[in-house]
Design a protein around this nucleic acid. Structure first.
Length: 511
RNA sequence: GCAGACGUAGCUCAGUUGGUUAGAGCGUCGGAUUGUGGCUCCGAAGGUCGGUGGUUCGAAUCCACCCGUCUGUACCA
């Protein structure tokens, strides 16, 4: 006989995507609710945009080709226009604001959560579909809007139970622009090298000063032997940049008592320029604003090594970082990086409107943060009790109706309950099902009980405990452990009482 | 994309220098037990050894290419 087997379709999930189970969904919902509460309290309103956008609105066409960037999932509509799945929530917001600019009251304060998609190589904790939760203020030019964002990020982290375990670090793109200019990379033609330098700086967490110094100079070889080309900067420039990265506060770098001057050895070989000065002034202002509101440097801190978002940020940039080690399911400490970040993007809406519409906002990586919270035990404690199972002894219509009625009575009393929907003829399987689902109780009524106007309530949790003491199956079956007989009319009341007892036991065990 | 490692049952893995019919544990299903979960015992199903081509009398084993997974690295709005 030929093997039909070969025709079987292989069930497989696209790589970088994941299915989420009940506990995960409930935990994430809980987390989203906490974040939303903070954003609402700050006076932000929700808005939702779709997963797809026209690719040109996302600004992701490759230069010199008519195809979108490979990093975004793209399809062609039936009129041949390119559409792409959004890769963040900021570009679609800019589109939404631009398209509705006449109806929207600026400054527009808004938040939204949603999945975003990146066509990149997935890794541990890195997916091709993941959730972000964003908040933005559109149409506010002053740095007080940026300061507010930083404070809201800090409040969000605390609402999630992370008080004292995070830091919001703030920098300004103008500072970095000033540095680029100072080391001679300020020109139009140096764009590519500037990017290389910024990317190298962004690797500071990963490779430390030495690794970054290599990337700024000759280049770096990784452990598999692969070589990454460097930015070929001068020794003086490399040292100056490393000084910035090593600095823990901006005051370590700058003396502002009389005019602005660099304090450190390598940096002071370069002159302070306009960009740098502007950036510095803005940072100072943010610092004063947040401190004035009571957010000291243990929560929000100026840090000149923050790089972030190379493309569209124009001013202040900020990110939230966790201060504890995150271990994965294998027990290894993983490089976690930031769990959220953002900044000022003054040019994004202008692309559509031609009008200056300054904006600032940040994004929380929901999936990553959820992983971290789970590790801390601050999330994922699934306290939803599985349903009470009403077992089926007789399958005739009338009997089924009675079981269904019992189930309904429990539901009406606010108790999760279900009638067994499998093959009722194998009664053992019904209890096996209940056991594996973790059902707290099973309701049993056969013809004997029926005639006596009674039902049996079986405590499956207590029964499981007792099973350890019984080795003989006949005894196990006949003793009907943890099972009581009650009047049919007392069903709801007795079930309620037994569930309450179990809840009490769980609470005790938890302490 | 680049570099390296690895692909054997649903899962975790054995499989000798290339040699008969590719194994184990766990899980699944059936039975012992038609009205009672767990334990125990008995039995069964489940594999074109990632794919294709090549070398060979003979390939899970050797070679080439492809696909996939993992690790590092690049890119990451």
């Amino acid at each position: 006989m030929a093997k039909v087997k070969n025709n079987k379709l292989k069930a497989r999930l696209p790589r970088g995507f994941t299915d989420r189970a009940a506990a995960d969904i409930r935990a994430t919902d809980e987390m989203l609710a906490k974040i939303r509460t903070v954003f609402e309290r700050y006076g932000f309103d929700p808005v939702e945009t779709p997963a797809f956008e026209y690719t040109d609105c996302l600004g992701k066409f490759l230069p010199d080709t008519d195809r979108p960037n490979a990093g975004v999932f793209s399809v062609q509509d039936d009129d041949e226009q390119w559409m792409s799945l959004r890769y963040d929530l900021t570009a679609p917001l800019a589109r939404h604001v631009a398209e509705n600019i006449n109806e929207i009251q600026l400054p527009y304060r808004t938040y939204r959560a949603g999945y975003v998609y990146r066509n990149e190589k997935p890794g541990p904790g890195r997916f091709r579909q993941f959730m972000q939760f964003d908040a933005d203020t559109v149409g506010a030019a002053g740095v007080q809007a940026d300061a507010e964002m930083c404070m809201m990020m800090a409040d969000t982290m605390e609402a999630l139970g992370l008080k004292g375990q995070y830091i919001v670090r703030v920098n300004n793109r103008k500072i970095l622009d000033g540095v680029m200019e100072a080391i001679g990379l300020g020109g139009e033609e140096d764009g590519e090298r500037r990017l290389t330098v910024l990317r190298a700086m962004d690797k500071y967490d990963k490779f430390g000063s030495e690794g970054v110094a290599l990337l700024l100079g000759e280049g770096r070889k990784d452990e598999s032997g692969d070589f990454t080309a460097g930015a070929q900067l001068s020794q003086a420039a490399i040292e100056a940049i490393v000084e910035i990265l090593d600095a823990t506060a901006i005051d370590d770098l700058i003396d502002d008592t009389n005019n602005l001057t660099f304090k450190t050895a390598a940096l002071s070989k370069f002159a302070v320029n306009k960009h740098f000065e502007d950036g510095f002034r803005e940072l100072k202002l943010i610092n004063d604003l947040v401190e004035g509101a009571g957010y000291m440097s243990d929560r929000i801190k100026i840090d000149p090594s923050v790089v972030r978002g190379l493309e569209y940020y124009t001013g202040p940039v900020y990110e939230a970082e966790l201060l504890f080690d995150v271990t994965n399911e294998k027990g290894e400490v993983v490089q976690f990086g930031s769990v959220g970040g953002g900044g000022r993007y003054d040019g994004l809406v202008k692309r559509f409107t031609g009008r200056d519409v300054p904006a600032t906002g940040f994004s929380i990586g929901v999936s990553r943060l959820a992983t971290a919270l789970k590790n801390l035990g601050k999330l994922g404690t699934d306290d939803v009790v599985p349903p009470v199972l009403v077992t089926v002894m007789d399958g005739d219509t009338e009997a089924l109706g009675r079981y269904q009625k019992m189930t309904q009575a429990l539901r009406e009393a606010g108790i999760r309950a279900e009638m067994y929907q499998g093959n009722w003829k194998k009664f053992g399987n019904q209890l096996k099902y209940a056991d594996r689902r973790g059902c707290p109780l099973a309701i049993i009524q056969g013809s004997d009980e029926r005639e006596a106007g009674e039902i049996q309530i079986k405590d499956l949790i207590e029964g499981k405990r007792l099973s350890g003491e019984i080795t003989d199956n006949v005894t196990w079956r006949e003793s009907r452990p943890a099972q009581i007989t009650v009047k049919e009319t007392e069903l709801v009341e007795r079930v309620k009482a037994m569930l309450a007892e179990q809840a009490e036991d769980r609470a005790k065990a938890g302490n």
